[in-house]
Write a protein that binds this DNA or RNA. Structure first.
Lengths: 234, 234
DNA sequence: CGCTTCATTGATCAATCTCAACTCGCGTGG
DNA sequence: CCACGCGAGTTGAGATTGATCAATGAAGCG
């Protein structure tokens, strides 16, 4: 059981067999679940095919992607370890997007029907899920504002800061540490911000030139948090 | 009771006093509610102040708006007659956006606490609300794709087509009629598509020049639906 | 170890913004 | 009832941002 499990809804709801095994007890509610692994850059599933199961990511980073006729791609949201991959637990998805692995990932799929019944029985549990759904909506709202009314530089810095905040909130990265694992490729940042990947490297190079961030391998170091926040406009 | 009430969730849930009065019966559940009117272009409320009430729009068009420091504005969603103004019925909003009237509007505010309790008791009713919430999320997803990866021309035509589809789905406009009341100003289209209002008039002029649409007063006529859909890329 | 994907950089091009000037229509106060 | 003023729409010129294309080197992965 990794750190990501600590705040995982499946764990908090007591439905994850992994947690149960570790603690040597049965899961509170028996919910049919399967474990899967997907390699980096691969499609995990299409949402339109996702009728009976609710996926939760255990390890690695993933994204929800929409394709645009003509080759364009747009990332609609990111999934970090310990997060529901889409909050449509109670309602079937109507979306025609698909989930794609950013790094290699492992995830669990829970049976929707049982999960739904359980949530309807426990208002606190329902609240947990709805609140996360609301956070997703808030993310989408912020993306809309960024895409519509902010410069490339701002979009890039803001998405980095927001992801870092999410990692810290889930305690995947220490709140103090300015150096952290940042697993996105330029292409992912580009697809999330509506920019070309070339332009993303130009923005990031500029930030490095001013000693605001530094990147080596897949570690991101925030050298000057104040400047970074100033650019992001927070 | 207008046509908009027919598909209004407050009506479907049997909580609207208006429906009850018209039919000479009591509302199924007594939920405290108040009626309000707001003039065009006025702020209706801030979402952060909206703790105890759930608003439903009865007449007119409204929008949810985010301001960006420096004068920019972005419309996050539209509200047509008979729609919940934000689906955060069950959870308190965490957003810092506000609702703004596009035309003059009338709306009703229902007490959140009672409504929530009622929804938790009726899974079908809960489903109704969650499904609408999901539709909102779908709208947001489409906006993100449009903003990130589509041209100005496409964004404008798509938002028009999507709004028209919504009006027709709610039977506010006949499915066949190509002429309909379209109450947005260029400024609203601009704020929803992330464009300048000048560029919106250029796009719309072009569409008129090609006899694809025509606008007079606040009536929009779709002269060439096929061409319009082709441009939108559907 | 060979191949694919990724990052970097520069030159050029296209889309859209900004600014400015003008017109129109409508609502309102005199 | 009229005049005025403001918000809204139109149009054009010039400025900017970011896309596209191309070429090269580096890194990751099987």
């Amino acid at each position: 059981m990794g750190r990501a499990c600590l705040q995982c809804p499946a764990n908090e709801l007591g439905i994850c067999n992994l947690a149960a095994e570790v603690q040597g007890v049965h899961a509170r509610e028996a919910i049919a679940q399967t474990v899967h692994a997907v390699a980096a850059r691969r499609v995990i599933f299409r949402y339109r095919d996702l009728h009976d199961f609710v996926p939760v990511i255990c390890e690695g980073w993933a994204s929800r992607v929409a394709r645009v006729p003509g080759g364009g791609r747009m990332i609609l949201s990111f999934f970090l370890p310990g997060e529901l991959m889409g909050d449509q637990v109670l309602v079937e998805p109507l979306n025609d997007s698909y989930a794609e692995a950013i790094t290699g990932i492992r995830y669990r799929a829970f049976e929707r029907r049982t999960l739904r019944k359980m949530l309807l029985g426990f208002p606190e549990a329902l609240d947990l899920v709805l609140r996360r759904w609301l956070e997703d909506q808030d993310w989408a709202d912020q993306m809309i504002v960024d895409l519509g009314r902010r410069s490339a530089e701002r979009r890039v810095t803001r998405i980095i800061l927001r992801l870092v905040a999410r990692l810290r909130a889930r305690e995947l990265e220490g709140a103090g540490a300015q150096e952290l694992a940042f697993l996105l490729r330029h292409r992912h940042i580009a697809d999330a911000t509506g920019l070309s990947s070339e332009h993303v490297t130009k923005v990031l190079s500029e930030l490095r030139r001013h000693n605001i961030i530094s990147v080596s391998g897949r570690m991101l170091t925030i050298l000057d948090p104040v400047a970074l926040h100033r650019i992001a406009g927070v």
